[in-house]
Nucleic acid binder design. Structure first.
Length: 827
DNA sequence: TTCGTGTGGTAGC
DNA sequence: TATCGCTACCACACGAA
């Protein structure tokens, strides 16, 4: 649609095309706006903002500002998750529950962001009537702002804003993405990939990065004699970073402040200065780029990079380069110190870096001149002076596993390599880790590390996305945890949307207080000693739908059977990521008409369709009942007890009637979620339909084929009976918590069998699509319910995808008209 | 043997 | 008043088919 206007309804694509057209029109207007007004700072980048009700400034003005400053304007809010922010003066009572998980802000937030030129925290601008606004009012007068607990809506963002480890991880991810983007732009294909090991590798790393930067910001010289540490505050907070003056007292990163202060009473504790770390890091990478001395600069972390030179340089030139880098970085960062290890392999460069610290550089060459410069060393020298733990990827666990029975002192690499042959290493540590260590002992890079150099595209590509919180997790009830999981999923979904990706496997990981650990650990709101459990779910079809993901995660939480009060940590992971553009996004389906090859016979057509378009299967690869059976057998494992879930009793309504309304509702809610996880509607209600009065044999459509046998669903052959079952199934599950995935899988398989029956089966397929659409239209009032969205998504992603495929295959033979739900309010 | 799942280890300050 | 114990990725063990 070149003109950007909605096309008239053409068969079953009409609804989608209408919306695609409408969105294109709006997008074109917004693009035009950006063009006319020129580029502005991208303050609202990644934000999807919806404006609700009457506002001041009005909706159009807010829209203009948001769009011009990099944001996306959400015109129609089909569901709360469509927007990251909702702008409203007040939250209508009817929307309070629905919007509970949203960032609902006053228009003042938009204006304040524009004034300050950056995205500001939303909580201080929470709209009247929201929980967040109530929290702010309650804590007014506190200079710190509201103290949020894990039960509060803003907790996740607040926690991440202060978490050093979260910052380190997100910076690293951003650097990798930036590298990849640059690499893909400048190195079309992989022509410049290194085929042989590069000549020189420089491993560059800041000395005590946080401590130095925070120190400089607080007015200390970078090499001050004053012992400094960066921490949040009190005695049980972690030392994130300390300078060398503090290290001389025995203070180490990760140590508690109370212990550090015992070792060094003069210790100066400095606050985190995340903005400054980011600024210095940017300067650091700029220096490495500006030097134009490297064939590649690989990011390792915010303050650490591996630089590669792919041409031979003499030792003196390497030394001069190290000196130059150190001087440039110091100049551009207000005096920050980097140390450098230079060697022909990653592992030797890393060891050289370890020995170069603090405030130095080392060049490792095979045969240094005897009595020459002390900054030039041999591999043997590094092996004799570095410890096993200095090797990359060798942490405490592996070192202990290997050196069991050899404890007593810190072993050097030279000593340990004498103790074990390659085969002994493999026996003790496993095939890959053992071989890796054997390689490292020879100064050679292991397969995994050298992937970074050989195939950076694969090495730096993102394969998963996750969020984890193991601090401040204290819940009293499962509904509170559900609300938290909703928010965490929403957080991740907004991330995955920014990446334009979808996921087809999700994992819930929890930390549960160990039975012998105290209720409250020594660290304030810490996790203490915990057992960890995880549960993964295959979604079958890649999605970014927060409702679908959230429902799975909540069901997974129930399967892990952790009492609410025992929970100390929660993580949600998205695995098997795919580009959103290549997966079938709802309402963004594209019919591949241009790729259709003319086929001569229906038989050929089917053959081609099978090879070119494998059927999409929406299934649950780990049926819940299998999961229960598997875990019943492993009684010696620390896995939780599922037996109470195996026999979830029916609810006694008369008993519930006597309970307080809140409590009764909570129990009903729990029961619905358990039921959804356990129950299959199709299994339980098939008999009812079989014995019903619907249909008669003369109405059989499907089994009349002369070539093909009857296509059954749930042992039913009459299409009327099947439709009756499906109608009842949809109606029931719309009222409750949506369809069971195994049921959907069975139904999808039925649809696929219809398709493989050829064009004659098409009316049956079309009839099923219409039936689902009709049911959704009938139950339009459930439009806000999760179950409604699940059915809607199934219709769009699974059923319509199949109809599209058939349209492509059979359009010459059969007229396909399908008008998708819902009715559209046309402009 | 191969595959999927759950668990655990490592790195950065 | 505390305090902000993340995240991506790989490898291993084990069980099922």
């Amino acid at each position: 649609m070149d003109d950007g206007h909605a096309a008239p309804n053409q068969g079953f694509d009409g609804y989608r095309e209408y919306f695609v057209g409408k969105r294109q029109l709006q997008k074109a207007q917004e693009d035009q706006l950006r063009e006319v007004c020129g580029a502005r700072p991208s303050i609202f980048r990644g934000c999807r903002v919806h404006v609700n009700g009457r506002t001041d400034p009005d909706r159009e003005e807010l829209r203009r500002e948001i769009v011009m400053h990099g944001g996306t304007f959400v015109h129609y809010l089909a569901r709360p998750s469509d927007a990251t922010h909702i702008v409203a003066e007040h939250v209508p009572t009817a929307k309070r529950r629905l919007w509970r998980v949203c960032k609902v802000v006053r228009p003042a937030w938009v204006l304040a962001c524009l004034r300050s030129g950056k995205l500001l925290p939303w909580q201080p601008y929470a709209a009247a009537g929201t929980e967040a606004a109530a929290g702010i009012v309650a804590s007014a007068g506190s200079p710190q702002g509201p103290r949020l607990t894990c039960k509060d809506p803003g907790f996740i963002e607040d926690f991440f804003a202060k978490s050093r480890l979260h910052h380190l991880s997100t910076w690293k991810a951003a650097l990798r993405e930036k590298f990849l983007d640059r690499y893909l732009r400048t190195n079309e294909g992989a022509l410049n990939d290194l085929r042989a090991p590069p000549a020189h590798i420089l491993h560059v790393d800041f000395d005590c990065f946080f401590a130095t930067v925070s120190g400089i910001k607080a007015g200390y010289q970078s090499k001050t004699e004053v012992p400094l540490a960066v921490c949040h505050g009190g005695s049980s907070s972690d030392v994130a970073s300390c300078n060398y003056a503090a290290r001389e007292c025995g203070i180490r990163n990760g140590m508690w402040v109370s212990k550090a202060q015992e070792l060094c009473p003069n210790l100066v504790c400095l606050p985190y200065t995340y903005d400054a770390y980011e600024t210095v890091s940017n300067s650091f990478y700029e220096v490495l780029e500006d030097l134009k001395a490297f064939d590649a600069v690989y990011p390792i972390s915010v303050d650490e990079a591996v630089c590669v030179i792919d041409r031979p340089l003499d030792t003196l030139s390497c030394q001069e380069l190290c000196i130059r880098i150190r001087a440039e970085v110091a100049e551009r960062t207000g005096g920050c110190v980097v140390s450098i290890g230079c060697a022909p392999s990653l592992v030797l460069a890393r060891l050289a870096l370890k020995r170069a610290k603090p405030d130095g550089y080392l060049v490792c060459v095979k045969e240094p001149i005897k009595g020459g410069d002390t900054q030039v060393v041999s591999p043997a020298h590094l092996f004799e002076t570095c410890t096993l733990r200095d090797l990359p990827g060798i942490g405490r666990a592996i070192a202990e596993k290997l050196l069991l029975g050899f404890t007593g002192h810190e072993h050097t690499i030279a000593q340990v390599s004498q103790l074990f042959s390659r085969s002994e290493l493999i026996t003790r540590l496993g095939s890959i880790t053992g071989a890796k260590l054997a390689d490292l002992f020879q100064g050679l890079d292991d397969v995994e590390s050298s992937r970074m150099l050989r195939n950076p595209r694969a090495y730096f590509a993102r394969k998963s996305l996750s969020a984890e919180i193991n601090w401040g997790i204290r819940f009293d009830s499962v509904p509170e945890i559900d609300a938290f999981l909703d928010r965490l999923v929403q957080y991740l979904v907004s991330k995955i949307n920014e990446l334009c990706m979808t996921t087809s496997q999700i994992v819930l990981k929890i930390a549960r207080r160990s039975s012998d650990a105290p209720i409250e650990p020594p660290k304030y709101l810490g996790m203490g000693d915990c057992d960890s459990f995880s549960k993964s779910c295959q979604l079958g079809l890649a999605t970014n739908n927060p409702g679908v993901i959230s429902a799975e995660i909540k069901a997974a939480f129930r399967m892990l059977s952790c009492p609410a009060k025992e929970l100390r940590g929660i993580a949600v992971q998205f695995l098997k990521l795919r580009e959103a553009s290549t997966s079938h996004m709802p309402r963004q389906l594209r019919l591949p008409f241009s790729t259709i090859k003319p086929l001569e016979t229906p038989k050929n057509r089917m053959k081609a369709s099978v090879t070119e378009l494998p059927p999409v299967v929406y299934k649950r690869a780990t049926p819940i009942k299998d999961f229960f059976e598997r875990h019943k057998r492993t009684s010696n494992s620390p896995s939780p007890d599922f037996t109470h879930m195996m026999s979830a009793p029916a609810l006694c309504e008369s008993f519930l009637g006597e309970l307080p309304t809140d409590l009764a509702e909570e129990i009903r809610r729990e029961h619905r979620i358990y039921q959804k996880a356990r129950s299959s509607y199709l299994q339980s209600s098939r008999k009812k339909v079989e014995t019903g009065v619907h249909g008669n044999t003369s109405e059989h459509i499907l089994e009349n084929s002369e070539i093909l046998g009857p296509i059954t669903f749930q042992n039913l052959t009459s299409q009327e009976k099947i439709k009756s079952l499906v109608r009842e199934w949809i109606s029931q599950t719309l009222r409750s918590d949506g369809p069971n995935h195994e049921d959907l899988s069975l139904f999808t398989s039925y649809l696929d069998r219809l398709i493989s029956g050829g064009p004659r089966r098409l009316p049956a397929l079309l009839s099923m699509a219409r039936l689902i659409s009709d049911q959704l239209r009938i139950h339009e009032s459930y439009g806000d319910k999760q179950s409604f969205h699940e059915w809607e998504e199934y219709l769009v992603r699974v059923v319509l995808v199949r109809l599209n495929r058939c349209k492509q295959l059979y359009t010459q033979n059969v007229e396909i008209l399908f008008d998708i739900y819902p009715q559209i309010d046309r402009p």
